[in-house]
Every structure is written in C-alpha cells, then in structure tokens.
Design a protein around this nucleic acid. Structure first.
Length: 444
RNA sequence: CGGGGCGUGGCGCAGCCUGGUAGCGCACACCGUUCGGGACGGUGGGGUCGAAGGUUCAAAUCCUUUCGCCCCGACCA
C-alpha cells in the first residue's frame, strides 16, 4: 500500500465566472468543476469534504434517535396534488413525465413522500414518536442559480421529518432537532446563529433558520444586542427596534445552512395520515421537518474561513487534516527518509493524511497546500531531516514549528485538537439552549 | 421573466470597429539547468473562433436567428 497521491487540479489564475470567494477557491483548489449553470462535479477533494460533513450529520442525527432512510428523488405527481403543492410550488418544481405520460417531479423536498411512507407503516401510537432522515440530492429549478454551491439546481440536503402524537410531543421533537443542529454546526467548526424565520412554501406554524454569518450571504438577519431576539428580515420586516426590549437592532448578512419547521398537521391532514391512539381512534401526526444544506455547507464554511492564500478548513471538514509536503532535493537518502515518515504518518492517522510528493518546486507545494486549506502541513525538507527534525505549519494561524522526528505523531495528535478537532462551543454565540454549551471531543 | 455583460486550445485573455484564413500568457509533454514560498532556457502537441443561416472572391471579424454562461432584481437548504 502506498500513500495517497492526489491529482492536484489547482489553478493559479482566477476563474472569470466566479464572483464569491468560496466559489473561486473551490474552483481554483480543485474541489468542484462546473458542468452547467447550477450543476457541478464534485472532484476528489470536494467529495471528501462532502463525506466528512455527511458523517458528522449522520452521527448526530443517529445520536438524536433519528433513523436514516432513503426515499426516491423521482416522485409521482399524485402525492403533490394531494397537498395542493403540484399547483402551488410553481416553476421551482422540476416536472417531467414518463413514457406513459404520467407526471412526476424531481423532489425539491420530501414532505409528501415521507408522509405517505409514515401513513403506510406507522399506524400505532406505540411506534411514535419517530424521526426519519435522509441525505440525498434535491432538485430545484431555481430562478437564478448562482455563487457555485451556494444556490444550485441540484444539491445535497439532509432532510428529516418527525412524526409525533401530539402538539406537545411535536414540540419536543422540534427542540431535540434544534439541539442537534447546534451540535452538528459546532462540530463542523462553524459559527452559527439561529433566527426566527418565515415558513414559506413548506408551511407550518413556526420555524427557525440556522445562519452562518458571512458578508456574501443572501439573507439578512437582525438581532438584538441586549437580548436573545434574532430574526430573518423577511419575518422582522422593516422594524428597526427589538420587539422585546425596543433597543435598535443590529443587522448582518448570512447564509442559511439549516431550517427547521414545526409543521403541525399541514401535511398529515390533507394526506389523511395518522395513527391509532390508545382508544383506537384515528389521530393525525404532528409533524416537523428539518433541513440542512449539506453541499451549501462547503461554501458557507469557506465564506467564514479563508484568507488571501486560500481556504482554511475547520479540521472536521478538511478533506485531509494533514498534508505532508515532501520537498525532495537531490539527497536520495534524505528523500527516502521523508517518504518513510510520510508512510508512518499515513499509517498512524488513517484517512487523514495526504502526501504531496510531486516533482515540483517547494513554492508550488506551499501555495497549493495553502490554497486547498489543509489544517496541518508537515514540511519535510532536506536540511531539517538531516538534523532529525521536521517543520510543521498550522494553516489557520500560520504558526510554524520545528519538531523532532521522533515526536511528530504526538505533535500532530496534540495539535489537531488545538487546530480545531476538539471544539468547545462558545456560549452566547447563538440564542440556543444552555444545555448545548458543552465541549465536544471529536475523534475520527 | 425584465436590465446589463460575455462566448476565440484545459484556464485567463488579445484580435472584431477598419473582412485576407488565428495569436499571447498560464497549464500540458520532452530535454537541460534549478530546488524552502507559484524558477529559467530550449523543443513540442493542442483551437470546425458557442451554433445555424446569410452577405462576400474571401468571415473570428459584417447582418439575422438561436443556444449557453455571468452579474443586478421577484425564490430557498
């Protein structure tokens, strides 16, 4: 077995078509490639980031007691007609028909399908409450796809749906998902704010959005500097003062990365979906739905964390936490020694190490490592190796150190934590429950 | 769908106004010299100029149509 050899697909020049920084850096760093408007290939690095995110999302959803399922992206029109959304959803809905002229939609969301699933399988109050989730490609015929992964016509979403026996139980499911979302975003290393939001096309009684604060965001959120009130301007309207304490509101742009809805019976009622209660009576599900824009998270993370040199991934999202730069040189003995260290690290930290052993000048490797955003760089240069040491660089701070070869594994283990793999949730960062303010130790 | 801009080797662009049969930088391949912050020299490969139609002896260039892309406004993860 050999160390990973990445076909670096990096570009020195700025792509002309990309406007926002995350889009430019993902294109330049070889994370994605455009196929058509709003449609992208995920290249090897991009795919790895996607998988990193998905893994954390799965772990936290499972931890919350939710069950993963997989529903079809292709959905029959009848389900959409049952809730009236076949007409109401509008042009955003990708519609097509099969060879028999039967109408279908490419799912932009799955309330109808999952409600149909539930009503056929969750018939007893003893089976409830249940939360089902999936990670799947969604389709929306956006008016204007833009900003790379920020708003595509096809994107990866984690969508979850809860089925509860009562309004109160539904609210409990909702609260659990709010907590879970805070956990997910903090593990991903993102600074997120939860705001009150409009329910929009999905409907329901209340909803909250999870916003990554970033200058390029398409949304504007307002929040009160002296209390916990925060809201999407869509909902807050033009009011410039806090409705609770009447002080002037702050506002900032943000990227919506998650959205939770308390749906009540918005779907269960028209679809006649429910269960038998202990008295044998039909009762409607109280539903909730919970989305996370998985592919959008790549863009949001970069918007929040980058510099002039390139991406600065939070460790949890990085395609590789460690990039080993084999600088080469003429001394064959030292070169072999470097290769040995690279193999050793690859062995010690499985699936986390990338080795850049290209025949390229050092500057090229430094530039690409910075551009691609690997959190830790291990630089194996001839002179240092001769002195039994290597240089390490922390991408986020730019800090460099010389470390004895014998202690390199320990150094990486220790410093992965400092570089972000051990995430402490900053209190007051969001208006969420205090219960969430704890320290999450990540191991992968 | 309105408003603005753009389509020329993989990427970034020039050429178009004033038609004469395509050029530069980067990238790529090979050789040599380099080798800790995107090296240098030499050689080489690669383009039906978005597409269709028209004008003309001749069209990347002029005319018409069409397709696609990007940016600004009404949607959402």
């Amino acid at each position: 077995m050999r160390t990973t050899r990445l076909p670096y697909i990096t570009f020195h020049e700025e792509p002309a078509e990309a406007e926002v920084i995350s889009h430019r850096l993902m294109l330049r760093g070889g994370y994605i490639k455009k196929v058509a408007g709003g449609l992208y290939d995920f290249l090897p690095l991009g795919t790895r980031v996607l998988r990193r995110i998905e893994r954390i999302v799965r772990e936290e959803m499972d931890r919350a007691g939710a069950f993963e399922v997989l529903m079809p992206a292709l959905q029959p029109a009848e389900l959409w007609r049952a809730t009236d959304r076949w007409d109401k959803y509008g042009k955003e809905l990708f519609r097509l028909s099969d060879r028999h002229d039967r109408a279908f939609a490419l799912g932009p969301t799955h309330e109808e399908v999952v409600t149909d699933l539930a009503r056929g399988t969750l018939r007893s109050y003893r089976q409830l409450p249940v939360t089902l989730y999936q990670i799947q490609t969604k389709f929306r015929d956006e008016i204007r796809p833009r900003f790379g992964l920020m708003r595509g016509r096809e994107f990866v979403m984690k969508d979850a749906y809860s089925f509860a026996r009562s309004e109160r139980e539904g609210a409990e499911c909702y609260a659990i998902m709010q907590d879970t979302y805070f956990r997910i975003f903090s593990r991903l290393g993102l600074s997120v704010r939860m705001v009150e939001a409009d329910t929009g096309m999905i409907g329901g009684s209340s909803s909250h959005e999870f916003m990554v604060l970033a200058p390029s965001g398409e949304d504007i959120v307002v929040f009160c500097p002296s209390c916990t009130y925060s809201s999407n301007v869509e909902l807050a309207g033009d009011s410039t003062r806090c409705p609770l304490c009447h002080v002037p509101l702050d506002r900032t742009t943000a990227i919506e990365v998650g959205h939770v809805f308390d749906l009540g019976t918005r779907y269960s009622e028209p679809m006649n979906a429910g269960f038998l209660d202990p008295d044998g009576r039909e009762s409607l599900y109280h539903m909730g739905c919970y989305g996370i824009g998985v592919s959008r998270l790549l863009a949001a993370a970069i918007e929040q964390s980058h510099d002039e040199q390139g991406i600065i991934w939070p460790c949890a999202m990085a395609p590789y936490a460690v990039c080993v730069l084999l600088l080469g040189g003429k001394d064959t003995e030292m070169r072999e020694r470097g290769e040995g260290i690279a193999r050793h690290l690859d062995d010690k930290f499985p699936d986390m190490v990338l080795v850049d052993d290209r025949e390229a000048r050092p500057g090229v490797k430094f530039a690409d490592a910075d551009l691609c955003g690997f959190p830790i760089q291990v630089i194996l240069g001839e002179k240092n190796l001769r002195d039994d040491r290597v240089e390490v660089k922390i991408r986020k701070t730019g800090e460099r150190q010389l470390v004895a070869i014998s202690g390199i594994s320990e150094w990486i283990r220790d410093h992965l934590g400092k570089a972000g793999l051990s995430v402490s949730v900053p209190s007051g960062e969001w208006g969420g429950p205090d219960a969430m303010v704890d320290t999450l130790t990540l191991d992968r």
